[in-house]
Computed example of a mutant assay.
Amino acid sequence: MTAPPEDPAPLEPARVARTRLGVEERRAQIVAAALEVVAERGYARASASAIATAAGVSKGLLWHYFADKDDLMKQAVVSTVEQIGRELAREIDVSAPPPDIIRAGIGWIARWSVSHRGELRAMDEITRVLRDTDGQPAFSLADYEPNYQQQEALFRRGQELGYFRAFDTRVMAVTYQGAVDMMLSYVDSHPDTDVQQYAAALVDIILAAVSAPAPPPARK
């Protein structure tokens, strides 16, 4: 009796999963893997090998797209923040009244945070831990400048249209960004929090602070 044929050797997992992607798609794939590994293992244990495995690529391919691990981690934060901004811009009617834009924007980021807790947690850890070549923090408040400028423009538009009272738009932009960041940090550390209720309350507080006083009722 002849022996049964041997089972074919399994294909290597990396070869099965690997597809030819464009440069930006491949970078995005590696960035997503980096955030996933940091979220699961922490920054210190997020090795290049673990990231490559999560991305389904060879370790050497990482350095085709990024200079080193520090560069990968920094670009992971920068590119994800940019992606959040693009997604937010697609979801919000920027021609709407400024109070409506604020309400829609904070509501959207609150909803986004629920389904992206791991990414937010990883980004927070990277921004706290990553250092530049001089040993200084790789991220600082200066990295918020594009956000501050966009928010200032929105507040100035609200003032010009009569929705908002007179105030220092830079101070309000910094306060606004800080309040949103604190919302994300708080709901992450308090997972039972109703994030939509929190967002709605935060919007009410911000609009109460910036809104122009209502005109007095007309005399009869």
Rank of each mutant, 00 (worst) to 15 (best):
R156N: 03
V171N: 11
E145D: 14
Y163E: 05
Q149T: 12
M172Q: 13
G158T: 02
S140L: 04
R157C: 03
F139R: 08
Y176F: 14
Q149H: 09
T169H: 07
F139Y: 07
Q136K: 11
Q150I: 03
E160G: 14
Q151W: 03
P146G: 07
Q136F: 04
G178N: 13
A179N: 08
Q159E: 11
T169D: 15
L141A: 12
E152H: 04
E145S: 12
Q136D: 07
A166E: 15
D168T: 12
A166K: 14
R170Y: 14
Q151G: 02
L141K: 11
P146S: 05
P137D: 06
S140E: 06
Y148I: 14
E152P: 00
V171S: 12
A142G: 14
D134L: 06
F139V: 08
V171W: 12
D143G: 06
R157W: 02
Y176V: 06
E152I: 10
F155L: 11
D134H: 10
T175G: 11
P146L: 04
Y148W: 15
A142M: 10
D168Y: 07
E160K: 05
L154F: 00
G162C: 01
L154N: 01
S140N: 07
F164L: 02
A173Q: 10
L141C: 07
Y148Q: 10
Q136R: 08
Q177V: 15
V174F: 07
Q151E: 11
R165F: 12
A173G: 11
N147C: 10
L161P: 00
Q151P: 00
G178L: 09
E145H: 13
F164I: 00
D134A: 08
A173Y: 12
V174S: 02
G178M: 13
V171C: 09
E152C: 05
Y148T: 09
Q150R: 13
L161W: 02
T175V: 10
Q151H: 09
R156G: 02
V174T: 08
G158A: 02
N147D: 15
M172F: 14
F155E: 02
Q136Y: 01
Y163K: 00
Q159A: 02
A142V: 15
Q151S: 09
A142C: 07
F155Q: 00
V180H: 01
A166R: 15
Y144K: 10
G178S: 13
G135A: 01
G178V: 14
E160P: 00
F164W: 10
Q149R: 14
V174W: 06
F167E: 04
L161T: 08
A179R: 08
E160W: 01
V180Q: 00
Q151A: 08
A138E: 12
E145Q: 14
Q149G: 03
P146E: 08
M172W: 10
V171G: 04
D168R: 10
E152L: 03
R156W: 06
Q177G: 06
Q136C: 02
A138V: 12
G178K: 10
P146I: 03
E145V: 14
Q150C: 05
E145N: 09
A166M: 13
R165G: 15
Y144G: 05
A153I: 02
V180W: 01
Q150M: 10
R156L: 05
A173F: 13
A142L: 15
